[in-house]
Simulated assay, not measured.
Amino acid sequence: MSVATLDTRAGDAKAGRVFLIGAGPGDPDLLTVKALRLIQGAALVVYDRLVSKEIMELIPAAAERIYAGKALGNHHLVQDEINDLLLRLARSGRDVVRLKGGDPFVFGRGSEEALHLARHGIAFEVVPGISAAAGCSTYAGIPLTHRGLATGVRFVTGHLQGERSLDLDWTKLADPEVTLAVYMGLQALPEIAARLMAAGLPADTPAAAVESGTTPRQRRVVGTLATLLDLTAAAGLQAPTLLIIGRVVGLADELDWFGPS
């Protein structure tokens, strides 16, 4: 390992540090002890749209807050701008708490932010959070794996860029032995359902959609691959919504511990 590499990882001694914190899916009780300690001691917070209001209330009133949220088709800041913002703030000598929904390294683009900081000699730490897939499925009464129903789980993104179709290997995804947890898939649900059924996944495969999971605003719709689109439309579900597709969804009613849907 070169001296230059060691110096880069040690960070700029004059710069502040950046804490990339996973805020989890919304319930503040699901924060890690470390995440809670850093949030409550923060003087400067850069936060995303998916950080729940309950978690935002834990930030000290005197702390500076900078919104860096992104919604489909409406980016307050694009990713390159967020990367440069974190770099600029750290170079000013201030420690930065970067709050991201779920886990920073699971469809959170936290690794892109970390790489940008690392390549510019800024010290950073990553605090894992409970992912949306783990939290929302559990609060919806759906185990991601279960003996005899699912031998594994796959996390995929359903985010569409403009009018482009999803670039996924549908043949591999249409595996009845595996649970699919689809992030940001509500808008693309028509294509997701059609492609999976065309690839051989049975139309009666249990499927669910969970809106604002783990929070008091949680809503859950349970149906099948063939019916989920109509059910979500009738319920008026909106983002953030996680899709869960697989036989484990058939346990949702029995394991619905969180409350009425």
Rank of each mutant, 00 (worst) to 15 (best):
A150L: 06
R98L: 00
S131I: 04
F155G: 03
V78A: 11
T151W: 07
G73C: 03
A114H: 00
N74P: 00
F105P: 00
K70A: 06
G101Q: 05
A140H: 01
A118M: 10
S165D: 15
A123Y: 13
R94K: 12
K70S: 08
R119K: 12
E125S: 15
N83M: 02
I82H: 12
L58W: 00
V106I: 14
L58N: 09
R65C: 07
V97K: 05
A61R: 15
Y67R: 00
H76L: 11
S111H: 08
L86Y: 05
R147D: 12
R154Y: 04
C136F: 09
L89K: 15
S165W: 00
G101A: 02
A140N: 07
A133F: 03
I130S: 01
R98Q: 09
A140G: 11
I82N: 02
Q79A: 06
R109D: 06
L144V: 14
R147I: 06
A62C: 07
P143N: 04
G93V: 06
K70C: 10
T145L: 04
D95N: 14
V127K: 03
R164Q: 13
G108N: 10
E64H: 00
H120E: 14
H116R: 09
L144Y: 10
H76F: 09
I122W: 00
E112R: 08
V106L: 03
L115E: 15
A150M: 12
A90C: 08
Y139E: 11
R98I: 05
G73L: 01
I130F: 01
G73H: 06
G108D: 09
L89N: 11
P104V: 02
Q161D: 15
